[in-house]
Design a protein around this nucleic acid. Structure first.
Lengths: 225, 225
DNA sequence: CCACGCAATTTTGTATACCAGAACGTCATT
DNA sequence: AATGACGTTCTGGTATACAAAATTGCGTGG
């Protein structure tokens, strides 16, 4: 029917995108048959794709119970943010030491792009620019393994991180923090850049309560996992 | 034929163990048919297991070219050690802040176990005790996500880390560093514990050259990936 | 009217059969 | 003799068919 090789890989990417961008939400059921019909392939590549996604943690599959978009417990959410903050801090520290001037110029441009969108009505536009800013710093660490690892955790947190920016005032605050991080990186102040990034990403104190308050039903598992 | 459920999961664990413990070495070919015959199952669960392992990075599968135990480039090796050092440092920092007294007692016992084996003839015995010591610290960070993430990277580096201890004098030096890390954790000195752990794990300067010198052929890919 | 149990349906897990692409070897040509 | 093209064979990718388990709905009994 289709003249390709490696259908499963395509499916992985498509499903990944749908999960990260929020089309598929935590807790959504991923039925093998529906997916195979939707994509016009048999169940085999669908299953392989789901296996792969389960490996990266984006979906959870329970034996004989099917596969769902991974939803996590509150405890895991806190844990993952704690790790995320540290990974991004490491990226920032290394970027401050290693990022070439030309890439810093690009980072400045991305920062200004964020700045231009900070008063924009919908938070999603800022979110996209924000992602590009952060990814530029990942790339700046010049450690592609760290970059992949960081993106992986970021993807798994994406559904929840997206919510953060919908909180009033968060966009402006985030934007100010970007400026400080940028200048630290630009000046080669590794420790400062790392510390600022850590605080920028971490969800601590009241922020945690605020975040939990706007997480929709179904995004988090009940305590009895 | 077999009366079980979820054959693939079993295969994942078996293969994982073989890779981590060095029975299967980087570059070894994982033929689907041989594996299916060896384990008495069909190719389907074998393929699913390989998919999962590919997701966690332990094996690499090239379309139409088969799958092999992941072998990495020198650049990746350096990158992974850089990340590993930081992850373990984070574990140590958090452990210094959060590890309950009773678990610290256990950590002391594990440290003494290492100490008892430091002059032992074969480095593998020390290696196993060393693993237990480090894993106790992972657990001490009280962040199960970080623990999983750290173990995952550790597993991927296992074939190379194992080699390190075969270098003359490395065992004794490692053991001394353990003592310092232990005392920092025990005293709740988070930053010190993290810094010491970072240096303990990192492969820097001459150590890198020494490590590369004893990596067997086939463990590392040629530059043209 | 509610609860428990059985059966039917749905859905996952496994096996097998089929197809396509890549590696290797052979033969012919220069 | 060397090199390139063609074909065979082996291996991986996909589809389909079959088996087992879980959920759900219905019926019966209390």
């Amino acid at each position: 029917m289709s003249q390709n090789g490696k259908l499963a890989t395509d499916l992985v990417q498509k499903l990944e995108r749908d999960i990260v961008t929020g089309v598929l939400k935590p807790g959504d059921k991923l039925d093998e048959r529906s997916l195979s019909e939707r994509f016009g392939v048999s169940r085999t590549p669908v299953r392989e794709a789901l296996q792969t996604l389960a490996g990266s943690g984006l979906v959870a599959t329970m034996p004989r119970r099917g596969t769902i978009v991974a939803s996590i417990t509150v405890a895991e959410l806190i844990e993952m943010f704690e790790v995320m903050a540290e990974l991004e801090a490491m990226c920032a520290r290394l970027a401050a030491r290693r990022m070439p001037r030309v890439d810093i110029e690009n980072l400045i441009a991305l920062s200004e792009e964020c700045n231009g969108l900070k008063d924009h009505a919908d938070a999603d536009a800022y979110y996209e620019a924000n992602v590009r800013f952060h990814e530029a710093i990942y790339a700046g660490c010049r450690n592609s393994f760290l970059e992949r690892q960081t993106k992986n955790v970021r993807n798994r947190l994406a559904p929840y991180r997206r919510l953060q920016l919908h909180r009033p005032g968060r966009v402006k605050k985030s934007n100010n923090e970007h400026a400080d991080i940028l200048s630290a990186i630009s000046n080669g102040e590794a420790e400062t850049a790392g510390k600022l990034m850590q605080q920028h990403v971490a969800v601590q104190g009241e922020s945690l309560n605020d975040l939990l308050a706007i997480v929709p039903r179904g995004y988090l598992e009940p305590l009895a996992s």
